[in-house]
């Protein structure tokens, strides 16, 4: 059964006078990992912000479980959708435990700020990312990979069935990139979390996505399983990239190998 959790219906998105995304439709199916790819400035992050209710569509609508997301109370949305913005910033001196605890905000009231449930969710989120050993450290003293894991823990403590992640691995080294994506994958298989994320690395995108969405200039060019979407023709159409697509020797998913100009045989 494929139940749609998040749906964008003919959304037009923009900032000021600039329209970034126009008349776009997208369905996010329950329990799937959807990865949005596309060149810089194609509207990936803008779309993700609209799905997370950070940006109101100029026209069209975003539906969460069939209801217009802009008509649901902000707090209610935050108990269902957790989102991690690109390059979030923490105030000086905040510890990892404090940061992750803030993820409980949507479950709290002013008179109920640290319940047993909050404590349990925070401990669980810290263990899942392996950040429990760093709980007492100050966020701005962590390495890039640890910091990103701390932020992901905060989103996990929110205990939502939907996760929107905007470039969650951009500043990490390759080993940490794989760590974070493995964690996302485990949440997806063990808890049935529905994930939508924006990634730049096409090979990792192909490896972890159930559905790959390729965007260019505010429109969706192709979507579907990575093996169907990621073709040499698509890379040329979407990224203006001359590349070979081979089977990934580890995962069997498509592997993109760019053809560099200085190596091409017809160079002379």
């Amino acid at each position: 059964m494929t139940e749609v959790r998040l749906r964008a219906e003919g959304v037009r998105l923009g900032y000021g006078d600039r329209v970034v995304v126009d008349d776009l439709d997208l369905d996010v199916v329950d329990g799937s990992i959807t990865v949005i790819i596309g060149p810089n400035g194609c509207g990936k992050s803008t779309l993700l912000r609209a799905l997370g209710r950070l940006l109101a569509p100029r026209s069209g609508a975003v539906l969460l479980d069939g209801k217009r997301i802009d008509r649901l109370p902000t707090k209610e949305v935050a108990t269902v959708v957790g989102l991690l913005p690109q390059a979030p910033s923490a105030p000086e001196g905040l510890t990892v435990a404090d940061l992750v605890s803030r993820g409980r905000q949507p479950h709290q009231r002013w008179y109920r700020q640290w319940s047993a449930g909050d404590e349990e969710a925070v401990s669980r989120a810290l263990s899942l990312t392996g950040m429990d050993v760093h709980a007492e450290r100050v966020v701005d003293e962590l390495s890039g990979g640890q910091r990103q894991r701390a932020w992901i823990s905060m989103t996990l403590a929110q205990d939502t069935s939907l996760l929107l992640l905007d470039e969650p691995i951009t500043y990490l080294d390759l080993a940490h990139q794989v760590d974070v994506l493995d964690l996302v994958h485990r949440l997806h298989t063990e808890r049935g979390t529905t994930v939508v994320m924006v990634l730049h690395d096409l090979n990792l995108a192909a490896r972890y996505a159930d559905t790959l969405v390729a965007m260019r200039e505010g429109r969706i060019v192709a979507q579907g399983p990575p093996s169907e979407v990621l073709s040499e023709q698509l890379l040329s159409d979407v990224f203006d990239l001359d590349a070979k697509v081979l089977p990934d020797p580890v995962a069997g998913t498509p592997l993109v190998v760019p053809v560099s100009a200085h190596l091409s045989p017809d160079r002379g």
Partner: peptide
């Protein structure tokens, strides 16, 4: 790292935070 299920059954107190709870207040 542990699996999700291990973690669910193995929840310790969150470090660094003590609670003050009274009925529905916390």
């Amino acid at each position: 790292m542990k699996t999700v299920h291990d973690v669910v059954h193995d929840v310790a107190a969150a470090p660094g935070r003590k609670a003050l709870r009274l009925g529905p207040l916390a």
